[in-house]
Design a protein around this nucleic acid. Sequence first.
DNA 1: GCATATTAGTTGCAATCGTAACTATCGATT
DNA 2: AATCGATAGTTACGATTGCAACTAATATGC
Lengths: 156, 156
Amino acid sequence: MAADGFELNAFLPYRLNRAAEFVALRFAAQYKARYQLTRPEWRTLAALGSTNRPMTATEVGAHSAMHKTKVSRAVAALEARRWLTRSEDEGDRRLEHLQLTKAGAGAYGELTALAASYQAELDALIGPTGMQALAVGLHAVERAIGKIERRAAREM
Amino acid sequence: MAADGFELNAFLPYRLNRAAEFVALRFAAQYKARYQLTRPEWRTLAALGSTNRPMTATEVGAHSAMHKTKVSRAVAALEARRWLTRSEDEGDRRLEHLQLTKAGAGAYGELTALAASYQAELDALIGPTGMQALAVGLHAVERAIGKIERRAAREM
DNA sequence: GCATATTAGTTGCAATCGTAACTATCGATT
DNA sequence: AATCGATAGTTACGATTGCAACTAATATGC
């Protein structure tokens, strides 16, 4: 512990990042090997697959906390693979509604099977008590993020 | 929710990553603006500053979950800034013991002040109950990661 | 004690990323 | 309706990244 009493191991960004990185990398290795999907591509596919309605690129970005250029390139790649289609908004032609094709939805289904079994492994390792605490804690973080975002929006 | 019942919002890698990314990016904006530090550099500085003893590059990588090339380049940058020094191990000349200089330790001290105030902001937003749950949950994740690593080590 | 495998750390290179600038469109102001 | 500011999304380009190959040193097997 440093002289001033700061504890890095209790510092939220550092700790969260370490856990997230480790857990995400192990999963990424799986879909990368089987589907040659990059992380932004998986995250975009996941965002679109998880809701049944079409989303815009901006919504995908907000849902997955990805930068808009990342989303833009991931969308282009998924489109080239014919896993999603774009359709212009009638009222506002800046907007593109993104929607998974049948093939895209199929891929999402296969990937969620992988995801579910990975989640089961983690569940078993983390244990029900830890998992419950984590869920509560992450929920609190998500609420906090919401507050920060609303505050930022207000201050503009 | 998808037809097969998979809930992306409950999927740990996705959820953890979103929270970590958001929280880390806001902090990164601060040290980037004031010190022109990159994220790997801050993480390396933090790992070295948080323990008082010297560490090797590999230990830094393990501590912060960073790829070894990231660590290598961060170390070179911090050395150029004269924030750390390397010294060869006597017994094993492959190893380099990294240690913060006075200037490096001073910078770490200033950065932990920033970190502490950011942590206080997060604490206030997340609340004591949420924070407590998160701590327990993250601890469980860290134990799980430890298990996975030991299992992987055994299987080699 | 020599050959082979491992490990620590670095680097070349291709791929990925983020910033900033751009196009296109929309909304608001006058 | 002309202008100005804001927003959705794309792209050029310099910076960052990670993989794979490398160097140098140590450990292991025979």
